[in-house]
Amino acid sequence: MTTINDALARAHHLLQQDMLGYLDTVEHLTSEYDTDDDTILTVARTEVPRLIAALRGTVTGHKPDLHGLCLGCPPTWVDGRLGREAWPCPTISRAQEFLKNPDSIYDSVPHERP
């Protein structure tokens, strides 16, 4: 059973590294001091719609049900029964926080800003 857990942990790590690498590349290619304006415009035109779609897809999946619980969050055991996060869930709350204050992500995750 440990092998499956280790394999899943490794797969999650690789997925996270792939996504963070993509974001690092887009950030680097669109920084004014590192890249010429034509490259910035080309990257922005192709990657900004992709980033918007990723965020929109995440946000639209996290919506309240009739009881005000998030449909996008998986059920978890709370006080001996299966329950869901109240909406707005942590995913929506954090996404909103990062949209309003993008630099706050560097305070909350162990990732150095490039």
Rank of each mutant, 00 (worst) to 15 (best):
M1L: 14
L20G: 01
L99A: 13
E112F: 03
P88L: 07
Q16Y: 09
L41K: 08
D18P: 00
P74W: 06
P75F: 05
I4H: 14
V109Y: 03
V59W: 09
V59D: 06
T30Q: 02
A44G: 04
P102C: 05
G61S: 10
I4V: 11
L82I: 06
V26H: 04
W77M: 13
L41S: 10
L8K: 15
N5C: 12
D24Q: 12
D34E: 10
P75H: 06
D34F: 09
R10W: 03
K100Q: 11
T3S: 08
H62W: 07
P49I: 03
H111P: 00
H111C: 00
I40W: 02
T46E: 14
T3D: 13
D18N: 09
A53N: 08
R94D: 04
S104G: 01
T46Q: 14
E47V: 00
H67W: 11
Q96N: 10
P110K: 08
A44Y: 01
G57I: 03
A44N: 01
A7Y: 03
V26P: 00
W87F: 15
L20K: 08
T25Q: 11
A11D: 09
H62M: 05
G21K: 10
Q17H: 11
A7R: 06
I4Y: 15
R84E: 06
H12M: 13
Q96R: 09
T25R: 13
A9T: 15
Q17M: 12
V78A: 14
T60N: 10
G83E: 15
R45W: 00
L55S: 10
G83H: 08
C73Q: 04
A86V: 11
G72T: 01
Q96K: 07
C70G: 08
H12A: 13
L82Q: 12
Q16E: 12
G21W: 08
R50A: 13
A53D: 12
L14R: 14
V109D: 01
L29T: 02
T58Y: 13
H62N: 03
I52H: 10
T2E: 14
G72V: 02
A54S: 12
D24Y: 10
S104M: 05
P74N: 11
S104R: 13
H62C: 04
P64D: 03
G57M: 04
T58L: 15
D36P: 11
P90E: 01
L55A: 14
V43A: 07
L20D: 07
T3C: 05
L51G: 07
I4K: 12
N101E: 08
D36H: 09
R113Y: 00
T60G: 00
